[in-house]
Design a binder for these strands. Structure first.
Length: 537
DNA sequence: TGTGCCGGGAC
DNA sequence: GTCCCGGCACA
């Protein structure tokens, strides 16, 4: 009972422990006006329940089927609420406010309909079956009551019938419930267990949530997120509170285990989705302390940067010393031809992510930044730099063939540079052979860092910008040819790069065109002292 | 010195 | 996100 959540659902079927029926029902029935949907309990076995709200009557209808096959249904207007004080639930049962269930939700919910005006149907069917994962019911849809046949023989009026699969709960019927009290207990218990079911939460969140209720649900769900140890949290990624403490995908959480064991393929699929979510976070988050030591080749006209010392040594041996790259023999000479540099991987990733259609922070192998062949645009003295070598350092990969166009194509996405078409050469020197960062030694990942970037330290490598051919750029420093291994600790931080600045455009800008007196006529960028968007070069 | 605009702060 | 401005580099 440590996690009580309001759930965004109008129809739910689930098994709950019979042991908790009575308690759950008490809580539900006595203290939950407007909160009928969320009573906590453990999910063991015993009853399936479907609950729906009626948009026409405002009543909540519950249908349940016991393990023994008996079934029944009731509404919030009769059986479930009869004889109960519905207005003081939270006072009577303060525990209902724990875990963001009662209090917080109640503050947002002015009434029952806030919580229950839901429209999507969810029906979990254990034993590997699933009636209908997500069925959508319009708010105006007549009440769904499943078979509509209660154990009391009460036939739901035809207008309330709805032959929806979600109401189908395949449990054998063998025993009748003792009465309304039992029903209420079961219903509350079911709702309780639902609040702890990650699967339900997942389905709830991923389904088409009615606007009225989604916000409240999200809030409550996110508030109680930390109390759950597993689950597939795939709803709105903008909810920043959710990913803060992501749960391990392979938790031993009992409810998860239950779901995994009882839902078969669906559970597996769900698990994979969870993994997908956790490891393919659509929103790349900043990593802390992400400085990475890179190794830069100091050979003249070669500014290759590799992520590993062995890689740079191999590079030097292979391309500069003319030795067999596969040979591990080293006399230490190559140590003089490279230096260590520190690279802010965050900024580098950000910069490069804008150059590639898919974010490098996504899951999968370490990011390999495709090289851009300088030969495709400008002559280059060392075409070998453009080859993305395989683990053996020899075989060019497909990336090396397809990357250049990609890299050049998306280079226009920067906000203030988007309109600056004149400064978007298809291959600038910055694209000079980025071959990979952060990859292991298995792949001889390397990237030819743009001189601007390397000169542009100490700052993070966010200066991956468009540079036009006509831009004045700092000539390659002759110190690069110095055969000196520069320790990182003693290497003086170079001044911010000169020439990284965007070249001043030839066209008149808003200031010149309109003058200071007509500043309101300037483009926004000019007003903000940004690169003019109106008069681009 | 005027201008363009980057980087960063305030909101 | 918008809005503003300090400060730098360039003409």
């Amino acid at each position: 009972m440590n996690s009580k959540r309001l759930l965004d659902m109008s129809t739910i079927g689930i098994r709950v422990g019979s042991a908790s029926k009575q308690a759950g029902m008490d809580q539900h029935a006595k203290g939950s006006k407007g909160r009928e949907m969320g009573v906590a309990a453990t999910a063991d076995s015993g009853v399936f329940l479907a609950c729906k709200n009626s948009s026409t009557t405002g009543a909540i209808f519950y249908k349940f089927v016991l393990d023994d096959g008996s079934s029944g249904e009731f509404t919030s207007q009769d059986s479930i609420l009869n004889g109960n004080d519905l207005s003081s639930g939270s006072e009577k049962y303060p525990q209902l406010n724990k875990g963001g269930y009662g209090g917080e939700a109640d503050e947002r919910s002015s009434g029952r309909t806030d919580v229950l005006n839901l429209s999507h149907t969810h029906c979990l069917v254990p034993n590997g079956q699933e009636g209908d994962k997500q069925m959508h019911l319009e708010a105006t849809t007549p009440l769904v009551t499943g078979s509509c046949q209660t154990t009391n023989g009460h036939q739901v009026p035809p207008e309330e019938k709805y032959p929806h699969p979600s109401s189908y709960i395949p449990v054998p019927r063998r025993r009748k419930p003792s009465g309304h009290a039992d029903k209420e207990v079961m219903a509350a218990t079911v709702l309780t267990s639902l609040s702890t079911s990650p699967l339900v939460l997942t389905q709830t969140a991923s389904a088409a949530v009615p606007e009225l209720a989604s916000k409240g649900w999200k809030d409550v769900l996110s508030a109680s997120y930390s109390s759950s140890t597993s689950g597939n949290w795939s709803w709105d990624a903008s909810d920043q509170s959710v990913p803060s403490t992501p749960s391990p995908p392979l938790s031993n959480d009992t409810s998860k285990s239950y779901l995994l064991s009882s839902h078969g393929d669906y559970a597996i699929e769900d698990s994979s989705e969870s993994t997908h979510f956790l490891f393919e976070d659509p929103i790349p988050r900043k990593r802390k302390n992400s400085m990475k030591v890179m190794f830069k080749c100091l050979w003249k006209n070669c500014e290759k940067v590799l992520s590993t010392s062995s890689g740079i040594q191999r590079h030097i041996r292979t391309f500069h010393l003319g030795r067999n790259c596969e040979s591990d023999y080293s006399d230490g000479e190559e140590d003089f031809y490279y230096s260590e540099i520190q690279v802010n991987m965050d900024s580098l990733s950000e910069g490069l992510s804008s150059l590639t259609p898919t974010s490098p922070t996504t899951a999968g192998p370490p990011p390999i930044f495709p090289p851009v062949s300088p030969a495709t645009c400008v002559p280059h003295s060392e075409p070998s730099h453009i080859v993305l070598r395989g683990p053996q350092g020899r075989t060019p990969t497909l990336l090396s063939q397809s990357a250049p166009s990609t890299l050049c194509h998306i280079r226009t996405d920067h906000a203030y540079q988007a309109t600056d078409s004149g400064s978007i050469p298809m291959c600038s020197a910055q694209a000079d052979g980025i071959e990979g960062i952060g990859n292991s030694e298995g792949i001889s990942g390397s990237w030819q860092a743009p001189p601007d970037i390397l000169k542009g330290f100490p700052g993070p490598l966010t200066q991956i910008r468009t540079v036009s051919f006509g831009e004045k750029r700092q000539p390659a420093p002759t110190t690069n040819t110095t055969i000196v291994k520069t320790p990182t600790s003693t290497a003086p931080l170079p001044k911010p790069a000169l020439g990284t600045r965007k070249p001043r455009g030839e066209a008149k800008k808003c200031r010149k065109v309109y003058g200071m007196e007509k500043r309101d006529m300037w483009c926004t960028a000019c007003r903000w002292k940004k690169a003019c968007q109106r008069f681009t070069d």
